[in-house]
Amino acid sequence: MAAELHSYLMVGAVLFVCGVICMATKRNGIGVLMGVELVLNGANVNFVAFSRYTKLGLDGQIFSLFIIVLAAAEAAVALAIALNFYNNHLTIDVDRANKLKG
C-alpha cells in the first residue's frame, strides 16, 4: 500500500513540476494556463491518493472535486482576461505584459 501511495505521489510530483516548468517557459498565455492546469492536477492526484490510501477518506475526493470546479472557474476567468489582453495588445505573449515593470 505504501508503495502505491508513493507511486501516486510521484506521479503528482511529476505533474506538478511539469506544470511549473510549463508556466516558467511558455511565453504563450494559454500555455501558461495549461501549466496551471497541470499543477492543479498534480495536487488532485495527491488528494485522491491520500483519499484511497490513508484515513483521509472521502475528504480527499471532495477536495479534488472542489479543485476541479475552481480550476474550471479559473480557466473561464483567465481566458476572458487573455482575450482582453489579446484585444489590447494584439498578441498573447505574456512577456509583453510588462506594464507593471518597476
Binding site: G29, I30, L33, M34, E37, N41, I68, V69, A71, A72, A75, A76, L79, A82, L83, Y86, L90, T91, I92
Partner: peptide, 19 residues
C-alpha cells in the same frame, strides 16, 4: 469538466488569439 469543458475552452482561446 476538465477535459470536456476546460480544455475545450482553452482551445477556443488558442483559436481566438492565434494570429
Amino acid at each position: 469538466i476538465y477535459v470536456g469543458g476546460t480544455l475545450v475552452l482553452l482551445v477556443f482561446g488558442v483559436m481566438l488569439t492565434a494570429s
